[in-house]
């Protein structure tokens, strides 16, 4: 593999990056650019497809193939591409409005089908590009330009939604934690079907500090419940124990270490991952990060291509003349 001595620079396009200073998107981009050389896929075989939003400008800044499409529809385009070109590695870049509001339908259907897509959901809990309206992940009561008296909608929990949509890989990370994000990317790209990664992303202009609890040195240690497969799920101060059919956060000292839930990302039963997803509320007092669920199911694209290959193997490739002359025919002299 001669190509693979690529560096971060090789994945950096010549386009000037135009996010606001301090935007969380910068660190996400930088982590991705650093990670791509390690992926071992030639640049020409990587495609980033995005929707519309600040986050969706992402593809312009990567020296790979890329498409900045239309609002909410990136999964559809990526689906056609991934199915018809199984040789490619296809990423979808989307925002919380893009994927959960206008594009909600496509998100759930690509997850249930298990299309070979790596979907990065930049969740800043706000509409950035349209200058600060509340989004489907904004906490109830959010005061924005379009909700001066506070928003009334109950927000989506993207992780719960994805698990409910039969997703086979679901993870959460934080924009500024390069190391954690890189680990999640590594696992997501190794996963065969679709992978959804929710990234907490700070928008300093319209929703600054939304994730401070999980970023500030003082609070994050307690708030972030680290999920590592095979290890106890815990933060610096709290741990997780079984509570009947569900899960409960307890102070570390209050139970013995052996009572803590040992994380099993490969648990076939989605209710386990779902229970984990319910631990984080809008206030973010306890936020599981890492991989909620990573189970194997055949990828849709590979099944589609196998169906074609199998029928050709069984019956031979189609012959146009035989097709046209099939059925009842007659000759006119």
């Amino acid at each position: 593999m001669p190509d693979l001595a690529l560096t971060k620079k090789d994945f950096t396009s010549d386009q000037e990056v135009k996010w606001c200073p301090g935007c969380g998107d910068y660190s996400i981009l930088s982590t991705m650019q650093s990670f791509l050389p390690e992926l071992g896929v030639p640049r020409e075989n990587i495609v980033f497809v995005s929707g519309i939003g600040c986050s969706s400008r992402f593809p312009y800044y990567l020296e790979t193939f890329g498409m900045h499409s239309i609002h909410g529809r990136a999964p559809t385009i990526a689906t056609g591409l991934a199915i018809s070109r199984p040789d490619l590695t296809v990423f979808v870049i989307t925002g919380d409005g893009d994927s959960l509001s206008i594009g909600g339908n496509h998100l759930i259907h690509s997850l249930r089908r298990n299309i070979e897509l790596k979907i990065l959901l930049f969740n800043n809990r706000i509409y950035g590009l349209t200058k600060g309206q509340y989004s489907p992940t904004s906490e109830q009561g959010k005061v924005t330009k379009s909700t001066p008296l506070g928003s009334l909608d109950t927000p989506f929990n993207p992780i719960s939604l994805a698990i409910g949509a039969e997703a086979t890989f679901v993870a959460r990370t934080v924009d500024s934690d390069r190391k954690h994000f890189t680990e999640v990317l590594r696992a997501a790209t190794a996963h065969k079907g679709s992978a959804l990664i929710e990234i907490f992303q700070n928008c300093p202009i319209f929703n600054d500090g939304a994730f401070d609890i999980v970023k500030d040195g003082d609070t994050k240690g307690a708030a972030l419940l680290q999920m590592v497969h095979g290890q106890a799920i815990k933060s610096e101060t709290h741990g997780l124990v079984h509570d009947g059919a569900s899960l409960k956060v307890v102070e570390l000292g209050s139970v013995s270490e052996s009572d803590l839930v040992i994380h099993d990302a490969h648990n076939a039963d989605p209710s386990y991952a779902f229970a984990l997803s319910r631990l984080s509320s809008s206030e973010l007092s306890h936020v599981p990060v890492g991989i909620f669920r990573d189970v194997q199911r055949d990828g849709y694209g590979s099944m589609v291509n196998n169906q074609v290959a199998d029928i050709i193997a069984a019956q031979g490739a189609g012959d146009l003349n035989s097709l046209l002359t099939s059925g009842d025919t007659w000759d006119v002299q």
Binding site: I77, L81, H106
Partner: peptide, 20 residues
């Protein structure tokens, strides 16, 4: 590909077209 709606139907076709 029987898509989830018409938007996804044409989107997937355009994506396939982009791929050749």
């Amino acid at each position: 590909f029987q898509a989830e709606d018409e938007i996804a139907a044409v989107g997937s076709a355009l994506g396939a077209s982009y791929g050749g």
